[in-house]
Each structure stands twice: as C-alpha cells, then as structure tokens.
C-alpha cells in the first residue's frame, strides 16, 4: 500500500524518459512488420526508412531489420500508412497473440 502513497497535492512527475509512464499502454492497435516486404530488409542496405522518418514518437529504429519500441509506441498507425511496401499492418491488441 505504501506504493500508493503520493504526498503531492497537485499533479506532477519527474523529468525522465517516459515521464508520463510507459505510453505503450495507450495503444489499441499494434504495428506488425512483415520484414520480407520491408525495403531496407529486401535490399540489404539503408533505404526508405519512411516509418522512422514519420513516426511522431521516435520509437522506430532505422536498423536492418527495422525495430519498433512497443514500450512507448502509442499505435497511431502513421508508419503503416506511410510504408510504400505495405510491410506494416495495424492489428488490434486483443487479436494479437
């Protein structure tokens, strides 16, 4: 119960990565990547990375293969929308195994 004890009388949080908490739990849809369609993965070199460029949360890593940090991804779906190869699909969280 001590964990619940918050002495603050107004709302505040300390400045930290994910200061509003692990915002991945806001997500209703999860981005699922089909790496076989992903352009950098296909070409085996740095290319495209539009998902990394457009992600408003900066949670996409421009690596091969690309990676999405689901701890903070809010599931907005912009990466899936922008991907020219349609390699990213938004899947309902409850439908994801």
């Amino acid at each position: 119960m001590d964990k619940m004890k918050d002495e603050n009388i107004s709302a505040m949080c300390t400045c930290a990565v994910g200061e509003a908490g692990r915002t991945g739990d806001w997500r209703s849809f999860r981005p699922v990547i089909d790496h076989s369609k992903c352009i950098p993965h296909q070409k085996g070199k740095a290319a495209c990375f539009l998902c990394w460029l457009y992600c408003p949360e900066g949670v996409v890593k421009a690596t091969i293969p690309i990676a999405i940090d689901l701890t903070y991804c809010k599931g907005c779906g912009i990466c899936a929308e922008e991907c020219p190869a349609k390699a990213i699909t938004m899947v309902r969280e409850e439908d994801h195994e």
Partner: peptide, 9 residues
Amino acid sequence: ENAAGVLGD
C-alpha cells in the same frame, strides 16, 4: 506508474 515505477495519484 510514473517512469520511476511509483504509482501516483
């Protein structure tokens, strides 16, 4: 929980 894992109000 906040980033430090403290469950706040």
